[in-house]
C-alpha cells in the first residue's frame, strides 16, 4: 500500500481538533448528558488513531512513546481505585462528595432541569480518571500494533 495522499492528510489535520474537543466534552459532561468516561475516551482515541492512519506510525512514534501512555493508564486506574477507597468510611464506592458544599458538591433539583457542572460528587472525577485510562489504553494498543505491522513489513522486504 502506498503513502496516503495530501487530501487525506489535510482533512485529518482539520478534523483532529474537533474530535478532541468533542471527546473531552463528552468526558467532562458525563454526569449531565449521555456518555461518560469510556465513550469520551473512545472518541479521543479514535482521533489519535485517525492521525496514526493518515500520517503513518513513524511520524507519531517520534512524539508519543507507548511507555508514557502505559504510565498514564496506570495513573488513571490508580486514581479510580483510590477515589473508590476514599468513601470506605461508609462503603466501597460511596459518593462522599455529594451534598457537601465542596467541589462538585451541589444537589440538583428533582426532575428535569437545565443542569449544572458543579454537581455529581465523585462522579465527574471518576469520569475523568476512567477517560484518561481509556484514552491511554486504546491509543497504546493501536500504536504498538501499527509499529509491529511496520517492522514486520520492513523485515519481509
Amino acid at each position: 500500500m502506498s503513502e496516503p495522499s495530501k487530501i487525506v492528510k489535510t482533512i485529518a489535520s482539520i478534523i483532529f481538533p474537533f474530535t478532541m474537543v468533542f471527546g473531552i466534552y463528552v468526558i467532562l459532561h458525563g454526569h449531565l448528558t449521555p456518555g461518560g468516561g469510556f465513550q469520551g475516551g473512545a472518541i479521543v482515541a479514535s482521533g489519535i488513531v485517525l492521525l496514526l492512519v493518515a500520517f503513518g506510525s513513524a511520524e507519531i512514534a517520534k512524539r508519543v512513546k507507548e511507555s508514557h501512555l502505559s504510565i498514564l493508564e496506570s495513573i488513571g486506574a490508580l486514581s479510580f481505585i483510590s477515589l473508590a477507597l476514599l468513601g470506605l468510611s461508609t462503603t466501597f464506592f460511596y459518593n462522599f462528595l455529594a451534598g457537601s458544599n465542596f467541589i462538585f458538591g451541589r444537589i440538583p433539583p428533582f426532575g428535569s432541569n437545565p443542569g449544572d457542572m458543579n454537581t455529581g460528587g465523585v462522579l465527574p472525577l471518576m469520569n475523568i480518571s476512567v477517560g484518561l485510562k481509556v484514552i491511554a489504553g486504546l491509543s497504546a494498543i493501536v500504536l504498538v500494533l501499527s509499529l509491529f505491522a511496520r517492522s514486520r513489513k520492513q523485515r519481509k522486504r
Binding site: 463528552v26 449521555p34 456518555g35 469510556f38 465513550q39 473512545a42 472518541i43 482515541a45 479514535s46 488513531v49 485517525l50 496514526l52 492512519v53 486504546l138 494498543i141 493501536v142 500494533l145
Partner: peptide
C-alpha cells in the same frame, strides 16, 4: 456513542 467510537473507528484501524 461507545459503538460508534470503538466499532466504527478503532476496529477498522486495527
Amino acid at each position: 456513542i461507545a459503538e460508534a467510537g470503538v466499532g466504527a473507528c478503532l476496529t477498522t484501524a486495527i
